[in-house]
Amino acid sequence: MPLVRHRTASRLAAGLALSPALLVLVVVYLGCTAWTVWISLTSSRMLPNSTFVGLRQYASLMGNERWQVSVANLAVFGSLFLIASLALGFLLAVAIDQRVRAENTLRSIFLYPYSMSFIVTGLVWQWLLNPSFGIEKMVRDLGFPSFHFDWIVRQDMVIYTLVFAAVWHAAGLVMAIMLAGLRGIDEDIWKAARIDGLPPWRVYLSIVIPMLGASFATAAVLLATSVVRLYDLSVAMTNGGPGVASEVPAKFVMDHLFERGNLGLATAAATSMLITVAAVVAPWLVWQNRRARRAQV
């Protein structure tokens, strides 16, 4: 009997210790999420009210041109950023894995951008890309007066400058993850491939990359979260401009929440983002879960 009592006591203690975290989870995350969804169904403007209007906020959101630009921007940014960061990070890791000298220094240099916030990254790139004193000015001063690089002030190109900055920021992290994966590959596999007469690019493509599936998944998930959250980079680099050409959904939410005093529209936008993310993540979670269960069997 004392054993049972002991077990009950320790379970109680564990429950007590976890309760603050549980409280925060329920009230802050779930509570606020639920509240946001509710507000999006009301006619709230500056202050929250409870006049239920159904999906009217969503209808006006879909018709909102700035929201449409934001969503399109996110799609372009997200896909380019993911592909470019994964590719560049992997190539950097492969380059560093060739037993180069000064490996530690190079690794630190490549990882360094990730230690900066998106705000700092955004400012740095805003300066670099500013036609009147950045790269364009520098190259012109070097004796190429016809050189043009003004993407940051062009509505059709500005979103790509955000991709540049974000890739510069994140490629080092991808490199670190990939390098750890590459280092985990048994050296005998490389030897066996050499005996088989496989050229190195073929080994990377057909053997190493498939082996790094978990590393790619980890990196992709980390990158994807920063895509959805994308806000500060746009604010610091372009403030959504020129015009609304570099607006993104998170910025749309923040602006309508705090500057334009349109709680209903802002929360409808936030809820749309939540639903989109859930639609992507839920099947993935189910798949992971099923795979884990199959691995147990």
């Binding site: 005998d188 596999i189 030897k191 066996a192 005996i195 057909s206 053997i207 498939p210 082996m211």
Partner: peptide
């Protein structure tokens, strides 16, 4: 030549 390794060195995804 052909070679066999201690760790088998098979290509795991094939």
């Amino acid at each position: 030549i052909a070679m066999v390794f201690q760790s088998y060195a098979l290509y795991p995804r094939m």
